[in-house]
Design a protein around this nucleic acid. Structure first.
Lengths: 342, 342
DNA sequence: TTGTATGCGTTATCAT
DNA sequence: ATGATAACGCATACAA
């Protein structure tokens, strides 16, 4: 049998109100003596307050939700760790919801979170967030921090990186290494980050006065397999590519596979740059040159922003938080000519 | 304002009982007409039953918990995916709890799950499960499926692989490739899987009549860094190693690092075998020969077993489920001599 | 087929 | 400092 607050009260010879005060650390209104006695009983009988009953009366909880599209994408465990760490520092629990890239499941999780009175949500979905989800969020008054997408709803903040600028930086770097025929492998065409990075690709081409060629661009799923397929397609076109900018690291890994199966060597035959700097990037050979996102920090900070909103400490300085990225130069890009920028 | 069952009842001009019957799909006792009307209202007002109130009265929930030590270990996202997939097939939600390798946090999550009336728990911790945790579990009557550890408590099942036999198989394989001086890199010394795998190592040596040498064995954390440190220590001993069996893949990756920093080439200078077959194993070079665990299936099956217990469909055939492993032979082991087993 | 009434375990208000 | 009690939103046994 589960022991309830009534049991403890009865055994201690006090009222439930008193037990409640003690258990919730209400500073006033209880003598040291009874306080001690009750704690002792709580220990002895292993009393655990029912989160249900508590939630029912308070209408809230100490839980935040994290919604992501796919935990097996190595980017997300790190993000989740960041969120979890900050949350638990502040006495919150995190519920991780893997939407499985399925809008239905994602929506179901959102309902689940609402039904459980979560106090806030960290939301990431590389795809466009569905209108149904959005309107639900708008009406629910639950604070939300969106990671890597720009959505304006009340009680929400956005946290992202400069995808566009970072990708432009990649192209400029490749240019500086002597590359002129630079391909682009993008993610799903409804992916916010992919769209932005593609813009950066075009920005840079324009800056560098390189004509944009449709045939140098291919899209795929945000998976290793997606990268592999896209890579094979791109390479099979024989368009004289010397380098490829890939939209994220797991796709870049797929690109490695594609090159291998076609007998091409990186970076001798073709240079590759990724995005994210997941762990694998420095473990594969050649080590992958890529754009580092401060993934853990982004998770940590998003939880921070969320809990600040929850606790009323809203950042006055502005709605959004932009994180810096960094190009990690490793071994997957070849210097083509002795090009001196001086 | 949140809309409650009372609101719907009032608007529909019926009692809350009727609304409740409809919402919970109680087959009998409601006319088609009112049923329709109520569903319509539910849609229109976006009524969501409070999980708190519901849980409070039923004393249960449709939630299962998954407790793991570290989501950033690539083994776990896959396991989690398996659990999540089965659970959501059956209409359950999964709460993922990352204990962060911290017994305190783990215990805190366990309490959290209990307070939220979870109907069951899938539990994995490579370390010995603390006595406090265990006694808590014993008293709580929540069904538990333990993954990769053997714990006997009522209402629980175990699911694991033959760690010992699999590691023995690794050693036999190395022997067949001509290796005689085989080192072992183990995980934390209170890790169940590490202990079992070490036994397998010793079993095989005995079978093969190779004397056991203490100096060929080193332990470390279950991380890349732990593997790297252990590898450096082992290699620095200059004990004439030709091969090393590593306790899991992320440590094996660390071993790769160690070899690189010492100027050793795999497999020419030293052969390496891992355990788990995480994604990275086939992405690093040389591709890692390793023992494949059916990780996703293990997650899926553990949720299956758990929900069977919950729903009373207990497997009569036995308490435990043992999964098969498979040695994936890739490129990290060198054949030393022409040894013909015929 | 539908409604009434009770209780789930807790917090919070108002007394004492 | 402590207690009595209403209220939270719902499921369910029992009545009608």
């Amino acid at each position: 049998m589960k022991v309830t607050i009534t049991d403890i009260a009865r055994i201690a010879g006090v009222s439930v109100a008193t037990v409640s005060r003690v258990v919730n650390n209400k500073s006033k209104g209880v003598s040291e003596e009874t306080r001690k006695k009750i704690w002792q009983l709580v220990e002895e009988y292993n009393y655990q307050p029912s989160a249900m009953a508590r939630g029912l009366v308070t209408g809230t909880s100490k839980i935040i939700g994290l919604i992501i599209p796919d935990i097996t994408n190595p980017f997300y465990p790190v993000l989740a760790k960041g969120v979890e760490d900050y949350a638990s520092e502040k006495g919150y629990h995190m519920i991780l919801c893997d939407g499985g890239n399925d809008p239905h499941k994602e929506l179901s999780y959102l309902k689940f979170l609402e039904e459980h009175y979560v106090t806030g949500i960290v939301y990431n979905n590389f795809r466009e967030i569905s209108e149904e989800t959005l309107s639900r969020l708008r009406n629910s008054s639950v604070p939300v921090v969106f990671v890597d997408s720009k959505v304006a709803i009340p009680q929400s903040r956005n946290l992202y990186i400069d995808n566009r600028g970072a990708m432009a930086g990649v192209i400029h770097y490749l240019y500086a290494q002597g590359h002129r025929n630079i391909g682009f492998i993008g993610g799903p065409d409804d992916s916010y980050s992919s769209i932005e990075r593609f813009k950066g690709y075009k920005d840079a081409l324009q800056d560098l006065q390189i004509p944009f060629r449709e045939e140098l661009v291919v899209y795929g799923e945000y998976t290793t397999r997606g990268g592999s397929r896209a890579g094979q397609l791109l390479l099979s076109r024989n368009v004289g590519l010397t380098a490829v900018a890939v939209c994220n690291d797991i796709m870049a890994v797929g690109m490695y596979d594609a090159c291998e199966s076609l007998g091409l060597t990186i970076p001798e035959d073709i240079s590759v740059v990724g995005f994210d700097d997941i762990n694998i990037a420095r473990l594969i050979r050649p080590k992958l040159t890529t754009v580092k996102q401060p993934t853990y920090e982004m998770g940590y900070k998003s939880a921070n922003m969320l809990i600040d909103i929850i606790e009323g400490k809203q950042h006055k300085v502005g709605h959004d938080k932009v994180f810096d990225t960094e190009l990690k130069i490793r071994d997957s890009v070849k210097k083509l000519i002795n090009y001196d920028r001086s």
